[in-house]
Design a binder for these strands. Structure first.
Lengths: 160, 160
DNA sequence: CATTTCATTCAATATTTTCCGAATGAAACG
DNA sequence: CGTTTCATTCGGAAAATATTGAATGAAATG
């Protein structure tokens, strides 16, 4: 094992990304894995991550899985080497896009349906029908804003 | 008690905002309270919220407290009435600004300090010093992007 | 100023989420 | 084709969060 304990720089990166993960209410293990991969010049395999982070196989694997799912970590096949290695994706646009695609876009898309159901639930003969229509319009406006915001957030982070 | 069970429209709004809260990893009770206030034409007091939501005093109070703290709910003093009443804030810009101010801005501001510490942790005589400097620059670039993004997100939702 | 009405707090409970590590099974190897 | 090496899964432990409801204390009331 070349490394089995993170250095000063690596430790600080891990702490920094654990904090960043917390901002998005993501588990510590995700911040740890990304932070260590970010702070290490070569790709690491699962056992190296476990050894350097001092955490479990299951949790570390789950973190890698989630990070790959949003596109924040990539598999690296080193020629002639059995173990899978992993490397941090550094393009902020990709990171943001992956996160948004997974965590918020589905809700925004389903939102359209839910707004439709809400519209159907208004009884025109009800005394509050007009109030409810106003609220419905408000939600529709919000939905439009958010829908327009998503691509802009992805755009702004381009090429960094 | 004028109402003691939410109507169809109210129930759907509650469900919708509970889902929206989940997107931000916020507790169900926060979505419930905001949803009900949003869907009701007049301000409600704590006991009405408890009765209509079927949830506890403590949890409902905490939800109101948090929502007021980010500016998503306002206190309403009705003349000649003892109980405090509450009304939903409908301006999306205010909602977004309140949330960001509370949940992300502090981290972005502290981030500057943490980046400084990270910079100090690089040992120039280390073989990896150059790699680490590159990573540090990457973090600095990200920090700038995020810092610039925050005011833009607030701006975009203006006047709705 | 005693009493009632309310908002707020808080310790206990319940629930959800995260983490762990042994077990499973797939893929490479000889 | 048996053996080894690895990634992945999964049930249960542990930790973190959310919820409850009774207790507290502040403010209004008469």
């Amino acid at each position: 094992m070349v490394h089995s304990q993170p250095g000063e720089f690596q430790s600080r990166c891990i702490t920094l990304f654990v904090r960043a993960a917390a901002v998005f209410s993501l588990p510590r293990s995700i911040g740890q894995v990304y932070g260590l991969l970010f702070a290490t010049p070569r790709p690491l395999n699962l056992d190296e991550l476990i050894a350097m982070l001092g955490s479990s196989r299951g949790g570390t694997h789950d973190a890698i899985k989630w990070l790959m799912h949003i596109g924040a970590v990539e598999r690296v096949h080193l020629p002639g080497v059995r173990k899978e290695h992993y490397r941090a994706e550094l393009n902020l646009r990709k990171l943001a896009a992956g996160y948004l695609r997974l965590k918020v876009e589905p809700h925004v898309e389903n939102g359209a349906d839910h707004i439709g159901e809400l519209a159907d639930s208004i009884d025109p003969s009800d005394a509050e029908a007009e109030f409810q229509s106003q609220r419905l319009d408000k939600i529709r406006a919000w939905h439009r804003v958010v829908s327009g915001l998503l691509p802009m957030v992805k755009q702004i982070a381009e090429d960094r």
